[in-house]
């Protein structure tokens, strides 16, 4: 049945399929196996883009490009935005917190795969290849976009509106969680200036740390013209200590052997 269907597609579509299907599958497997969160997200983006090209190949260009714009372009970009804040070297911990978690996960995974496969097998029996995409008379002639619009705003208007409502609630809820009320009144410019120049406060910026040829650490004190340490350049949070000779020695630059 499926074999018959597969044989009736054109050469171009077949070639594209055999290039993109391994890519999509590889992306999906890579998503699970990748250790770094960013790599996993990129693998997901790859799978999404392959799916988008499949849509375009099957005469649904609008759906395909919207998939690229919305999912790959906007949603995955938001994912990346959050993941990038984690730091580059954060990797998945492979430590099991629940006993036997891996075993049950594999069992349930196989069960889910079996369910999906059987469902899919039921769904694809009796499929035929449509003559072309569904079209409706639109402004620019027969149009697939108009057909999507008609379906979306007549038959599926209720689920569509429910989805938009749910998404709006989710966005407002996220804002509520993230919102932090300001403590106290906002200081205006005059108050800030008064506080800055109040007696007992030094109005200028503190002197920066000392930058020498041997060290550019923020813990290095700045020196006054007479060679003594400028006390204000010392951070209150870095405890003073004596450096060992090895620490005080100039650091080597990478890639070149010194002498």
């Amino acid at each position: 049945m499926i074999v018959d269907l597969a044989q009736s597609v054109g050469t171009g579509e077949t070639v594209a399929f055999w290039i993109l299907a391994p890519l999509a599958l590889g992306g999906a497997i890579g998503l699970v196996l990748a250790r770094s969160a960013i790599h996993a997200a990129l693998m997901l983006a790859l799978t999404m883009m392959c799916l988008a090209v499949f849509y375009i190949m099957q005469s649904a260009p609008f759906l395909g490009f919207v998939q690229i714009m919305v999912y790959t372009g906007a949603i995955m970009m938001l994912f990346l935005f959050v993941l990038m804040l984690f730091g580059r070297d954060s990797k998945d911990s492979m430590f099991e917190t629940l006993r036997g978690q891996r075993f049950f996960a594999i069992c349930l995974g196989i069960g889910l795969a079996a369910l999906l496969a059987s469902g899919l097998a039921h769904a694809v029996t009796g499929l035929t290849i449509a003559a072309g995409p569904p079209t409706v008379e639109g402004a620019g002639g027969e149009s697939n976009v108009a057909a999507i619009a008609e379906n979306l705003f007549t038959t599926y208007i209720f689920p569509f509106e429910v989805m938009s409502g749910v998404l709006t609630v989710a966005a407002v809820g996220a804002l509520m969680f993230a919102h932090v009320a300001r403590k106290g009144e906002a200081r205006n410019q005059r108050q800030a200036s008064r506080e800055r120049f109040a007696p007992g406060n030094y109005p200028g910026p503190l002197p920066g740390p000392g930058v020498f040829a041997t060290s550019d650490s923020t813990a290095t004190p700045a020196l006054l013209p007479d060679g003594t340490v400028e006390q204000q350049s010392l951070s209150e949070y870095v405890p003073p200590r004596q450096l060992t000779a090895a620490e005080a020695a100039p650091k080597k630059t990478e890639g070149r052997d010194e002498r």
């Binding site: 960013i38 990129l42 983006a45 883009m49 260009p61 609008f62 490009f65 919207v66 690229i68 714009m69 790959t72 372009g73 906007a74 970009m77 990346l80 990038m84 580059r88 620019g140 149009s143 697939n144 976009v145």
Partner: peptide
Amino acid sequence: DFEVSVLVILACSALGVYGIVLAGWSSG
């Protein structure tokens, strides 16, 4: 040119940012 060709440009500009974002992240 095809039915939704304006979307191609929007999709490409959305994907092009991946280049910039990944460049920034991968530089370390």
